[in-house]
């Protein structure tokens, strides 16, 4: 039992408290996905990036957004840190593994692959940050954000990687969405569970299909 110095936050170091942190950051990151996607969908307007560039400009200069950006970054870090901590804990809680474990019989594919999907999404995130954030905000480039996107997505390899990552993000979200609300103690009966699961799937489909539409749009525009 980890009791931190301050009793006010000590409970966040219990296994249950850490779950709450995981869920809270997860929900925060999911709201970010919605914001990000709604911005990105501007790429599909067919205005050669006018709206999208304006949006990108706003996002990188508005002071409020800049503060949120720091929070977002922290959110990612904490979410990843807790994930790593749980991996460590899991090993400690069962030092001797089962020889035969039929986990497929009692868990969903999505919950079993949370680690894998997390790693893929993390790798994607790094590549993505390198491509856009580092390129535009740190190194500086003469390309507009729209042009950067166009170049990236017209590359079939990059797009394939992008699509794969969002498929796995979808996996992560199916369980993550449900799990966050379960952790926050929302799912008290079967009716609420059905509701949360349904909304979770809808949300996942929205995010995955929404993001995937972008590379497909650019590839289609290029090749057809």
């Amino acid at each position: 039992m980890a009791q931190a110095a301050s009793p006010a936050v000590g409970w966040l170091h219990t296994s249950v408290g850490r779950k709450v942190v995981m869920a809270a950051t997860g929900i925060f990151l999911m709201t970010f996905l919605v914001v990000h996607l709604s911005g990105n969908l501007l790429l599909l307007r067919g205005d050669r990036g006018a709206a999208f560039n304006a949006y990108a400009e706003f996002m990188s200069t508005n002071p409020f957004i800049r503060v949120l950006e720091v929070l977002l970054f922290l959110g990612f870090l904490i979410h990843i840190y807790q994930g790593l901590y749980f991996i460590l804990k899991e090993k400690q809680a069962r030092p001797q593994r089962y020889t035969l474990n039929a986990a497929h019989a009692n868990t969903s594919l999505f919950s079993r692959t949370m680690r894998i999907s997390a790693v893929v999404v993390l790798v994607f995130l790094i590549v993505h940050m390198r491509h856009f954030f580092v390129e535009h905000r740190i190194l500086g480039t003469s390309l507009t954000m729209y042009e950067s996107c166009k170049i990236a997505f017209e590359n079939p390899l990059y797009s394939a990687f992008y699509l794969f990552s969002f498929l796995l993000l979808g996996f992560h979200l199916v369980h993550g969405f449900y799990s966050s609300f379960q952790t926050l103690g929302v799912i008290l009966n079967a009716r609420v569970e059905r509701l949360i699961r349904t909304v979770g799937i809808a949300f996942t489909v929205f995010i995955t299909v929404g993001f995937s539409a972008i590379p497909i749009y650019f590839l289609a525009a290029k090749y057809f």
Binding site: S15, F86, K89, A93, A103, N106, T107, S111, S179, Q182
Partner: peptide, 9 residues
């Protein structure tokens, strides 16, 4: 004991 990750097993 480990933490719960809501797999439902």
């Amino acid at each position: 004991f480990g933490h719960c990750s809501n797999t439902g097993a």
